[in-house]
Design a binder for these strands. Sequence first.
RNA 1: GGUGCCAUAGCUCAGUUGGUAGAGCAACGGACUGAAAAUCCGUGUGUCCCUGGUUCGAUUCCAGGUGGCACCA
Length: 301
Amino acid sequence: MKFLIVITGPTAVGKTAAALETAMHFQTEIVSADSRQIYRELSIGTAVPSAAELEAVKHHFIHTHSIFDTYNASRYESEAVKLLDNLFKKQDIVVLTGGSMLYIDAICKGIDDIPDIDPELRKNLKERLETDGLESLRLQLKKLDPEYYSEVDLKNPARIVHALEVCIMTGKTYSSFRKAEPKKRYFSILKTALNCDRAELHSRINARVDEMVNNGLEQEARSVFHLRHLNSLNTVGYREFFSYFEGKNSREEAIELIKRNTRRYARKQLTWFRNDPQVTWFEPGDTNRLIKFIESKMAEK
RNA sequence: GGUGCCAUAGCUCAGUUGGUAGAGCAACGGACUGAAAAUCCGUGUGUCCCUGGUUCGAUUCCAGGUGGCACCA
């Protein structure tokens, strides 16, 4: 029997430390499920594990890709599942940790098979969104895929654009690809999440942002400022500094905005995990209970 | 010590000619399938400083108290 231990939770709650302890206890490796720590050009603002932590336990998907790559949850799914195949050849347990909700779902449930989108097409649709407005795209979607039109959030440009991309590219409806059928995995998944008191989480976030700033986040952001149009850099911690560099706000305001946007991100993560019935919750400092829980679940199987 | 001004949401402040109140920010809830640290939707959360008085009814008017600020001593 193979077990994938998922340790997730809101940003800054202490996942890295808990995953490290758990992986060391079971003498195994860590697969990261973090959509920003995969980028080798980013370190400070993404809070990658320290050199010592990376030394102590083998990590995967940290600094493995470039901000220039077009990356997404689907690619992550195929790469990560392939990696897990290899890891499970020599291990019975693997730890998956990170806060990217969709990436975790991609591994646990899978993602529908949808063809890759031509970047030119996406660019064109985004331009049309600018010039003609959302309503024009909505009308086209209504014609091309009435089924999806009836259930999509009609105010959300990203959803409309993506559905249109698929319809135009494939000549089929986007809904015909949306099976939402969970993929069968041969390994068992134990999904856990960490959470603490909200006020405590906020002070952890604030302290971590201050630490990032002290460690040189501003310079790191400046080094990629000229690439700010890349999706990979539409990221909390960077975009606020970008608008400071553009003179839209002060440095102090940028730091406050990073804190606020990180808090909001944590709240969004909690909303997602809270509504996942498979999650078992733990306190961040209590890795012993987490490990006992894992051992008891493994004994059941 | 005296005089004046102020006290309403977590913060900054509106407002109620007496019928228990609303903006901005913060916060909170939700959606989510190739951008997901993305994108989008929703929600006022309140001893109107305290105690009396007047009144059918006081957050609003009156008196006293408390706290803050300013000026005069």
